[in-house]
Simulated scan of single mutants.
Amino acid sequence: MNKRYWAILIVYIFMHLSSLVGIPILVGQGVNLYESFIYWSMGSFVVALLIILFLLIPERTERRLHPRLRKTTVSHAMKWAIIGVFLAFVAQFFAIFIETELLGIEPGSENTQEIIRMIEVLPIFAIIVAMVGPVLEEIVFRKIIFGALYKKFNFFLSALLSAVIFAVVHFDFTHILIYTAVGFVFSLLYVKTGRIIVPIIAHVAMNGYAVLVQVLLVDYLEDIQKELEQLQFILGGLLL
């Protein structure tokens, strides 16, 4: 792994650790603890993304970035971007099915719910969740970590190891299977196209969908559910 990639990993790690210093500073300025965490997360994510994108600028002039990855045509990449969104949701569905039906794990993620609460406090945080976060994670976990593993091991082992690391970093161990499954799919999309933008699109689609359904459409969906319950009650009364 080249020095530029090591620098990116250091920036990513420092981004997370910086909250240990930044949050107390904001609290000292009179911002409450919860909002301090949100504000610092937003700022650190954006700054880290800008630095990482700057570090990746030299790659525009490099024709071959990985000995086993080759960029496909734009049309082929677009096709896999569409397929990838579908595959990611399918992988998530089967992982949830295994967790709930075979392992007896209750559906719903506390990690996700906490992120949703942050968005409710500061709606602009949705941009971090739906766009900035996925771009950062795909660069770090697919382009760098998976890419480094794929130079030494076969695809299956490289994708699995990088997906597990991706899952562990989210600190949602109850649903580690879900993160691993989608992470594996993202690695597949990267290998199929050689373009990191393809798994980024799939990742953005998944996060964006979660934000859309659980934040923006939650009231609308609740109204629909109430109407369906009322309709069921009416129809039940007519049939009795």
Score class of each variant (00 low, 15 high):
V129F: 03
G84Y: 03
I119W: 01
R63I: 02
A77L: 09
A95P: 12
H66F: 09
V169N: 14
D172W: 01
I115R: 02
F184Q: 10
E106W: 06
I144P: 07
A167L: 04
I124Y: 10
V121D: 03
K143Q: 11
P107V: 00
L65E: 14
L87C: 14
V129A: 02
V135M: 13
L177T: 02
P134A: 11
A88W: 04
W80G: 05
F89W: 11
I124L: 03
F166S: 07
T112C: 02
V168N: 09
N111F: 00
A181K: 01
N111V: 00
A167D: 12
E110M: 00
V132M: 06
T73W: 14
L136D: 13
G84I: 02
M78E: 01
L160G: 09
I165S: 12
G108K: 00
T73P: 03
F166C: 06
A81H: 07
I83P: 04
V169A: 15
I82H: 08
V185M: 06
A95E: 05
L136M: 09
E62Q: 13
R64P: 09
K71W: 08
Q113N: 01
I96T: 03
E120W: 09
E110N: 03
V168C: 14
V90K: 10
L102E: 12
T100G: 10
E110K: 00
I98W: 11
V85S: 10
V85W: 09
K79V: 02
F156A: 10
A181P: 05
A159P: 03
V164N: 12
H66W: 14
G133L: 02
I105V: 09
L188E: 03
S187K: 04
G133F: 05
E106P: 08
V132S: 10
E106N: 14
E99F: 04
A181H: 02
I83L: 15
V132Y: 07
I105K: 07
